[in-house]
Amino acid sequence: MAFIYFPLAVIALYAFTTQSSSFTFPPPGLTTEWFGVALGQSSMWTALRLSLTVASVATVTSLLLGALLAAAAYRARFFGRDALAFVVVLPIALPGIVTGIALRSTADQFGLPIGFWTIVIGHATFCIVIVYNNVVARLRRMSPNAVEASGDLGASGWQTFRWVIWPNVATAVLAGGVLAFALSFDEIIVTTFTRGSEPTLPIYIYSSLFRPRNKPVTNVVALLAIAVTFVPVLIAQLLTRDRESVR
C-alpha cells in the first residue's frame, strides 16, 4: 500500500522545496513561491482548459456509444456478438500507441486536420469500453421482467425508461462517465500522436520535465492534475462499490 501511495506524497513534498533544479532529501527549505509561478503561467491554464474540454466531449460521446452498446449487447444473442465483444476491449488491450499512430496516419492519409477533434476521437475510442463495462454489469443484474411488467401496466417506452430502467442504471452510467473523464484527462500516449500544436495538460507536464530550472513548478501542476480526477473517481467508486466495475 505504501508502495502505491508514497510517490504521491513525494510530489506534494517537492512542490514546496526551495531547490530549483534538484531533489535532495531532506529538502533544504520549504517555500510556496512555486505555486505563484505555476498558477501565473497562462500556457498552463490554456493546457488545462484544453484537457477539460477534450475530456468532457470525449466523455459525452463515449457515454452515448457505450450505453447504447451495453443496452444492445447485455442479453441479446446475435451474429458477431463475440467478435464485437473482442473489438470493444481492443482499444485498451492493445498498446495505446497503436490507437494513436493508426488514427494519426489515417487522418494524414485523408488530409484531415489534426487538432481538437482528433484528440477527442482518440479518447472516445478507448473510453467506450469503460462505460460499456460499467453499464453492462449493472444491466445484467436487473430483472428483465421489470421492463415487461412496466409495459404490461401501460407505461410508454419513455416512462419505462424514466421510471424503471434509469433508476437502476443511473449510478453505473455516472460512474462510467467519471472514469472515462479521468482516463481522458490523464491520457498522454494516444494524445501525443493525435494532437495539433496545442498541448493537453499531461503533455504540458511531460514537456516541462526536461526543463533545467524551476522544476518544482511541474509538481504544482501535477498536484492540480491529481486534484481534478481523484475526488470524482473516488465518489464514482463508492457509487458502484459492490465491485462490478474493474475497468
Binding site: Y5, L8, V10, A182, D186, P202, I226, V246
Partner: peptide, 18 residues
Amino acid sequence: LMPLWSSYLVRALSWRQI
C-alpha cells in the same frame, strides 16, 4: 484501484524525484 485512474505520468514523475 484508485491509482489506475490517477495520472501515470505524475506517479512516474515522483519516481524521478525519489
